[in-house]
Design a protein around this nucleic acid. Structure first.
Lengths: 246, 246
DNA sequence: CTGCCGGGCTAACCTATGTGATTCCGCGCG
DNA sequence: CGCGCGGAATCACATAGGTTAGCCCGGCAG
């Protein structure tokens, strides 16, 4: 059973077995366990280490002064919360857990050392940063143009495809620990409307959502409803060509 | 009169005069002139060069299959349209001009050479990539949480502060070549509502917008109306501390 | 066992924003 | 010199989505 981080980076590049060993070692450093709803980093911090999610879900978020809150992105196992932020000096947002989470906290120095010695890894880390930026762009489109149903459907497609990329789906099902309030904060909708819209998606047989488990009976159908095009996830290792259903 | 690119990077780091000379040379390569409403790069392209905006405005945008369009970000003079995209293999969005534009088209190889020889420049380029990502996050918040008035006010604050950073403001005024349709595509609002909201901003004396010129009589007031906090632009060269009004 | 709390669900009502259509103005082009 | 067009401005009307409030259920803490 391979580490989510490794599975993820291998969607992009081939890693040597030495590279993989280095990443495995790295993942065992500074392991910490966090409860749900804890902050990993706060706006204004000047982090000196990088947090790699080993298990559980977290998110970036930002509060407006009057309390409104937006979830800016999700971190799933294999994601790095703050890859390369040390180039900037201050966090402009916070990162918090959504479920209990285990992370590896890797000192800045250690990362720089690894990146210096393993160009393939260094490049892969930049790739992950750029893919995150691409995801952020797609969220801009999602919030700006899609209506509630498309928006939620799109988010579910994205999460499902990303989870599949790190081996966390089973057939057409995956875990869905997000509460409706979480979905609301991520989509810019009210909780009430998220609920309404989920009913609609259920009624249309596009999703089965019970407890913390999501099943997507027909991914293509959901993608169509969402106007979801997976190209922005850049899961196209050279030569290879895959669509979201591969 | 210094190049916008250099002014911009110097908000972040000190460049040696050699660094600056290299950037100046670079800016003279492959200069091209484009009309308004031309595409610089299209979704699906695999660009082998980097486009630096010397003058004029451009934007990233994305179309949904049914024609809806979202502007994802703006490029002002000194911005690089597609810094580091060669790490990804395909453009997941297009870049088009909003006004007549002049760009320097710099071959990938050349950039890599320069970055290899001038670590300061290399770092500054990554800084610009990360700041763009931070801007994208703030847009997520903007679209997800702010109402129409805050949203437009926020965008105007951002554009003004960014223009000021490259010396393109005069007192409290700057150029504003965006049409209301452009503002609508960027904010996810309808043209009609953009118009209504601009009236509101005018009535509140927060902006003076005539033709292609924007004046912000009281930037602090506009920032307050927008819940605008400039920290996400990361204009904080070490030691220095400035607020948006400096 | 009971009481509380987080999370899901629903209903009635309200409003910010979208739609579609029309007018007006200025400017470049034939 | 008149026509056509992009862009701004309005108006009347429609609706997606927000708000407030309340209920129900299940788990766990005391």
């Amino acid at each position: 059973m391979s580490l989510p981080l490794i599975q993820k980076l291998e969607q992009f590049t081939r890693l040597s077995s030495e590279d993989k060993e280095v990443l495995r070692q790295m993942s065992m450093e500074g392991v910490r366990h966090l409860d749900a709803r804890e902050d990993i980093i706060r706006e204004g911090d000047r982090p000196q280490s990088l947090n790699l999610i080993l298990s559980g879900w977290a998110c970036r978020y930002k509060h407006l002064e009057d309390g409104r809150r937006q979830i800016i992105s999700f971190f799933l196992p294999g994601d790095m919360c703050d890859n390369h932020v040390f180039i900037l000096r201050q966090m402009d947002h916070s990162v918090g857990t959504l479920t209990p989470v285990t992370i590896a906290q890797i000192p800045r120095r250690r990362i720089e050392e690894i990146a210096g010695q393993h160009p393939r890894i260094s490049q892969a880390l930049w790739w992950e940063t750029l893919v995150n930026a691409a995801i952020q762009r797609e969220w801009t489109v999602n919030l700006g143009q899609r209506d509630a149903l498309e928006r939620i459907a799109h988010l579910l497609c994205e999460l499902f495809v990303r989870l599949r990329g790190v081996g966390l789906t089973e057939g057409n099902s995956c875990e869905m620990p997000l509460t409706q309030a979480g979905l609301a904060d991520a989509t810019g909708l009210s909780v009430v409307h998220v609920n309404r819209t989920l009913q609609e998606l259920r009624a249309a047989k596009l999703i089965v959502l019970r407890g913390k488990s999501l099943t997507i009976p027909d991914l293509t159908a959901l993608q169509n409803a969402a106007l979801f095009n997976p190209n922005y996830l850049h899961l196209d290792r050279e030569g290879r060509h895959l669509d979201a259903n591969e």
